Computed example of a mutant assay.
Amino acid sequence: MKTYAPPSARRRRRLGAVAAAAALALTPVAAANAATIISLDHDVSGSTYIKSTNSTVRLGPGTLHTDLDIDTGDFTGSLTLPGTRTRFAALGLVPLEANIDFIPAGPVTGHINLAGENAEVSATAKFYVKLSNIKAIGLLPLWWFGGSTCRTVNPVSIPANTPPGEGFDLINGGRLTGTYTIGQFQNCGLLTPFVNLLVPGAGNTVTLQATNGRVS
Rank of each mutant, 00 (worst) to 15 (best):
E166D: 12
A20R: 10
V156C: 03
L176D: 09
T66Y: 07
T205I: 05
Q184V: 10
T56E: 09
I103G: 01
I100E: 06
I134A: 07
Q186A: 15
G138K: 07
E166N: 10
E166P: 05
F194L: 15
G110C: 08
V206Q: 13
R214T: 11
L26A: 06
G60R: 01
G201C: 14
S45T: 12
G62K: 08
I171R: 15
V121K: 01
F88C: 13
P61M: 11
A22T: 07
L93Y: 13
F185Q: 00
I70F: 04
V215C: 04
Y128D: 09
F168N: 10
A34I: 12
T27M: 02
P28T: 09
L191R: 12
A22S: 11
K126R: 15
Y4M: 07
T63M: 02
V57H: 04
R12F: 14
C188E: 05
P155L: 09
R14L: 15
P159L: 02
T56W: 00
F145Y: 11
A123N: 01
Q184D: 12
L15Y: 04
N154Q: 09
L96P: 08
Y49E: 00
Y4A: 04
G183A: 02
G62S: 01
G92P: 07
Q209C: 06
R85N: 13
T181N: 10
E120T: 07
G73F: 08
I50S: 05
P107C: 01
R87W: 01
G178A: 14
T80C: 02
A160N: 10
L142D: 12
Q186M: 11
F75M: 00
A136H: 03
A30Q: 11
W144Q: 14
G213R: 04
P193S: 05
V153S: 05
V57N: 06
R58G: 15
G92C: 08
T177P: 01
T36S: 05
A89V: 03
A30T: 09
P7F: 07
T53K: 05
G62R: 05
T3P: 00
L64A: 11
T56P: 01
K126H: 08
T179R: 13
G173K: 02
M1G: 15
R175W: 11
K2H: 13
A115V: 04
T72A: 12
T80P: 00
S132N: 13
T48K: 00
N113A: 07
A160P: 10
L197D: 13
L64N: 10
V199R: 03
P141I: 11
L114S: 01
D41E: 11
N187A: 15
T211Y: 03
I134V: 14
L15E: 01
G16S: 12
L59P: 00
H42S: 06
A210H: 03
L198A: 15
D41Y: 03
N118P: 02
Q186P: 09
